[in-house]
Structure formats: C-alpha cells, structure tokens
Design a protein around this nucleic acid. Structure first.
Lengths: 112, 112
DNA sequence: TTCGTTGTACGACTTTCTTCGTTGTACGGT
DNA sequence: ACCGTACAACGAAGAAAGTCGTACAACGAA
C-alpha cells in the first residue's frame, strides 16, 4: 500500500483540538521550528528531548489537529505548517501563538 | 483575615499556562462570556454544566494563568478579563482565541 | 445570634495525556 | 536478496487533569 496519512479537512478542524495541541511545549517547539523556515523537514531533523516514539506521537497530534501536513518522501516524512488553512479557519491565532512563543523564549517557564 | 486572592504579575505569566488554561472548553466559555461584556459578574452567574467545586477550580486556573482578576464583593467574587495585561504580554493572542471561539460555535465539536 | 448565600479547601475517583519500549513495514542502497 | 533507515502501530506504566461530594469560612440579612 502506498503510504499516506490522513489529514482533516480544514472545515472539520476544531478550536479545541488546535488549542490542546498547542498547549504542549514540545509541540509548540515543532510548530515554531516549522514557522522559522524549516519547512519540509523530516521528523528526525527536529532535535527534541524525547524518544522517537514520543516524537511520532506529537507529530501525529499536530497533524490530526489540522496544524501540519505530512507527506512521505522515501522513508522520511516531510512536515509543513498549514498556515493558510489555519489562518482561514482561525484568523490570527497561529501567528499570535508563534509570536508569543518567540517572545516567551528565555523567560520564566518553570520559574527558576 | 480580609480575603484576597493572589494574582500573578503579568511578567510572570507563561504561554504554557495561558494555552493550557484556554485548552479547556468550560474555561473558554467563561472567557467568552467575560469578553461579551459580562464583566464583574459573580462566579455563580455563569451557568456552567459542572458542579460548584469544579467551577471554582476552573476560575482558579484562569486566575493563576493570569487571564482573569478576581476580587471579593461581599460573599461574591467579581471576575474580569485581564485584556490589557494579556495584550501587552502576548499581543493578539487573547483576541484571536475569543474570535475563534465565536466562529467555532455551532460547528463540529464532537463531530456529529 | 442565627440563617442562607457564595465560594474555598481537601480528598478521592475517573479519565486523559505523556512517555517509552518493542515490533512491524515501506523505502533506498549495497 | 539483504540490510539499514525512518517512521507507524500497539500496548503499558506513570503523571496530570477534570469531576465531584463533603466540610469549612466569610459575609449579609433577618
């Protein structure tokens, strides 16, 4: 079978799923890297502080929430943000979160 | 003891806490009602589909995340959105979520 | 003072999420 | 054909979150 992953139609994307997906710091890290021009990069290219299984899980959550697309390229998967779709569905939301994430870097996360 | 509730300084507010707070539909319901002019309304005025204990819990999460202020007025508590603070900390984020919540009403939440 | 209202605090239960290891599959290269 | 890479699918263990009931404290009114 030619491997392909299911992506939700943008009209079926819920705010609940999007916010739940963005509530996790690791998933926001992925989104941030994708927003910084790391489009079409394999999952392994993101250096995340978790195991490979967990990494796969997070990418899956982002995809099922409608935030990213994933398509096969050989054995790898190329990831991309669904910027246009998200902006059509929830205008300004994704940009606001990405901006917030940038300005939140180096600040209190666990209150040191 | 004169009852008063602790509110985080806006500089100490984290994106993590804010998004985690907004990820719950009941808490978004509260935020939406506050945004629709229900400022300074007691907790009991929000008709939520949960018990009193749970309601208290959700208001507490919102307050500790920095999204709302709570001040006593007799036995009641008056709630208000920290619009200005939030917009200073994470510009556009709160508005985007409120707008998204409005446009998400009446749409697929559990996909019927 | 006594009572009802409003909300907090605590503990317990249930569900969900995060994380991981293991196993299996498609693809590319040798 | 064989092997290594990159990822998915599955199941399990632990942590975290939502929910509730009961008990308690502050305030206002009768």
């Amino acid at each position: 079978m030619p491997r392909e992953l299911a992506h939700p139609d943008i009209t079926a994307v819920t705010l609940d799923a999007v916010l739940a997906a963005l509530a996790d710091p690791i998933r926001r890290e992925i989104v941030t890297q994708l927003a910084q021009g790391h489009h079409d990069q394999a999952c392994i290219a993101f250096e995340l502080p978790v195991s490979k299984s967990t990494s796969t899980h997070h990418f899956r959550v982002l995809r099922e929430a409608g935030l990213i697309t994933q398509r096969y390229e050989g054995t790898s998967i190329l990831n991309a943000l669904r910027c246009d779709d998200m902006d059509a569905r929830f205008p300004g939301l994704l940009d606001a979160v990405i901006d917030a994430e940038s300005s939140d870097r180096g600040r209190a996360t666990t209150t040191p």
